[in-house]
């Protein structure tokens, strides 16, 4: 298969559960890279810790598997020292916005040229199903057996407010959007956020009685709608999919280049 050349096939079958959406994100991301025609050496994937973060072990790019919540900090270091490389940082919802929330907003504020992929299964998959800042009210988790009372962040609104210059959202049901949005995010010069709703049938699905992976994907089909659709006007509870923000602003590593130039002018 065209994307097999990007895989470390010796680690397959991978360790994600049957039907885990993270594999669909991996699948779509590789197709985006393939369409861009990039060589393995042009991409650096940095991840933290979580089921989602295991993704960096499976791809044959430059990869860094770092610590929980800190992937963007490591990626910032790589980008500052090698600005010509393309940084891709896939993160779980906990990784990105619980422990990693601080790094997330500041990477967005700086508009550093990194593609952040938020693999949002609304739960801590790896550690057994604790709720996250993206779970939302009424979600049942091991740490909220009677339902969570925490409102969730909206990744799109949060990213917008923090300064990200490319923001998109889709789901594992809408696979063609996964590769399209990731492709555009990588091409975008600045901090790009792609949120992908991805099923964790093992913890989120089971605890919230959402059925199998197939059932969860059907739910993504039914509870989402394209941005600004008529359906959204009629049912405000639908979650919008699409590209929300795409704008040009000064990019951090380029601005830093100017400072280096100023400092070395003599």
């Amino acid at each position: 298969m065209a994307v097999n050349k990007y895989l470390r096939q010796r680690f397959f079958p991978h360790l994600w559960c049957p039907g885990c959406g993270h594999g669909i994100v991996l699948n779509g991301m590789l197709r985006a890279v393939d369409k861009l025609g990039m060589s393995k050496n042009e991409i650096v994937m940095v991840s933290g810790i979580g089921c989602s973060a295991r993704i960096s072990g499976y791809v044959d790019f430059h990869t860094l598997h770092t610590i929980h919540g800190r992937a963007l900090a490591f990626a910032t270091g790589v980008k500052m020292s090698r600005p010509e490389l393309n940084l891709v940082v896939p993160m779980g919802d906990g990784d990105a916005l619980a422990i990693g929330g601080n790094h997330f907003i500041h990477a967005a504020r700086r508009n550093i040229d990194i593609t952040a992929i938020v693999m949002n299964n609304r739960i801590y998959g790896m550690t057994g199903g604790q709720y996250s800042p993206l779970s939302g009210q009424e979600v049942v988790a091991t740490t909220a057996p009677f339902a969570s009372i925490d409102p969730s962040f909206d990744v799109v609104e949060l990213s917008k407010a923090a300064g990200a210059t490319f923001i998109a959202r889709t789901t594992t049901y809408h696979v063609k959007q996964i590769d399209d949005f990731i492709k555009q995010a990588i091409l975008h010069e600045g901090f790009a956020v792609v949120e992908i709703l991805t099923q964790c049938p093992t913890h989120f699905g089971r605890k919230n009685k959402q059925g199998s992976a197939v059932d969860m994907m059907k739910l993504y089909r039914d509870i989402t709608t394209p941005i600004g659709s008529k359906a959204k006007q009629e049912n405000p509870n639908l979650i919008e999919r699409g590209i929300f923000v795409q704008e040009e602003k000064p990019e951090y590593s380029r601005e830093y280049d100017k400072i280096i130039e100023r400092a070395t002018r003599g």
């Binding site: 397959f12 049957p18 594999g23 699948n27 696979v175």
Partner: peptide, 8 residues
């Protein structure tokens, strides 16, 4: 092919 989580 696109939706298979296991790239199988």
């Amino acid at each position: 092919e696109l939706r298979c989580p296991d790239l199988a």
